[in-house]
């Protein structure tokens, strides 16, 4: 089946102020099918936010795309003019960001901001747009919709604001929603609510979602597939349960191991420390000859420092970039 979005060998670089570059994305290949939920799991500096922004060509001015393509239904989005891509954004593919506090215009009412998105992409009359806004508000807020639509962003809580942002994103019925850490600044109860909203939308509207996060538990009962990123590359990919329960890449294993859980509550006496990944996140301005995780990996081998591993099959349709699993030629997918 034709994927909805096909990212092919994407490379993105940022220019730094004093000269020099930071390599944010290296050779990233990713496919999203219709109605599929794909989780992008990674820590800060892994390039996950750059990936989300690059998909809609919304990178900051100091970014350069060094080859690669983002193909949406046969068109390479990276080659479109700004008018053409404006027509696509918010309409066929939507993108929502992390900070609900700053994602909304401070002096425009919430409902009006949803209407703006409709206005940008359709020629309907004002009444038709207003009607649609009401429907969206009811869909996302149940009974409180009217009141919240008339409120200003500073009168709403973080969770309510993020729901307005989601309403804006789905107003024109896009096929794909890219969400970059949409719940990171919210408390866990609200986080669950927002995931619930997204799940319901996915069902009702057959919406594909690319969910970028550093919190693995959000993806647990939500994503179909997980893609793990480290130092600008995808290093593991597979079904959600596969990746979370039996992660293959040493980084994924180490990262998931650092997560505190209730079951491991120290309760003071044990004074045992939480596992960490030794060392620091890699300097992204350097070009690595070998695997970027090598210096922090507990299972490193000599070959790891010499060259970058290519993908190998890891069972159950997953793939992993690690010499532990041998290598196969041309993992073209």
């Amino acid at each position: 089946m034709e994927p909805l979005l096909d990212v092919q060998a994407l490379n993105v670089r940022y220019h730094q102020q004093g000269g020099g570059h930071v390599f944010a994305l290296r050779d990233v290949c990713l496919q999203i099918g219709a109605g599929e939920v794909v989780g992008v799991l990674g820590e800060s500096g892994s390039g996950k936010s750059t990936l989300a922004a690059a998909m809609l060509a919304i990178l900051p001015p100091n970014a350069t795309i060094d080859g690669g393509a983002v193909v949406w239904q046969g068109t390479n989005l990276l080659k479109l003019t700004s008018e053409e891509i404006e027509r696509l954004r918010g309409n066929r593919v939507s993108l929502i960001f992390q900070e609900p506090a700053t994602a909304l215009h401070p002096t425009m009412r919430a409902g009006a901001q949803i209407e703006e998105v409709l206005r940008a992409h359709s020629n309907e009359s004002k009444e038709a747009r207003r009607q649609k806004v009401q429907e969206l508000l009811e869909l996302i807020f149940a009974d409180d919709g009217q009141r919240i639509g008339a409120a200003y962003p500073h009168q709403l809580s973080g969770g309510q604001r993020q729901r307005i942002v989601i309403a804006q994103a789905i107003a024109c019925n896009p096929g794909l929603l890219i969400a970059d850490e949409p719940t990171a600044s919210l408390d866990p109860v609200t986080q669950r609510e927002i995931i619930g909203v997204l799940k319901a939308l996915r069902q009702k509207r057959d919406l594909a979602i690319l969910f970028v996060t550093h919190s693995a538990e959000l993806l647990e009962n939500f994503a179909d597939r997980i893609v793990v990123m480290y130092a600008g590359r995808i290093i593991e990919e597979g079904g959600t349960q596969e990746v979370l329960r039996s992660p293959k890449h040493p980084y994924t294993q180490a990262m998931l191991n650092c997560r505190p859980t209730l079951e491991r509550s120290g309760a003071g006496q044990s004074d045992s420390r939480i596992p960490v990944i030794p060392g620091d996140a890699p300097e992204m301005s350097l070009d690595f000859a070998g695997c970027a995780f090598e210096s922090r990996c507990g299972e490193r081998m000599k070959i790891c420092g010499e060259r970058m591993p290519q993908f190998s099959e890891s069972g159950n349709g997953g793939r992993v970039r690690c010499f532990k699993f041998g290598e196969q030629e041309s993992m073209g997918r």
Partner: peptide, 20 residues
């Protein structure tokens, strides 16, 4: 109880235990 329910109880894939 509500806050506890939202917190990760155990590592992914760890078998359920009766009480921890």
């Amino acid at each position: 109880r509500e806050l506890l329910a939202c917190a990760p109880a155990r590592a992914f894939g760890a078998p359920d235990r009766a009480a921890f």
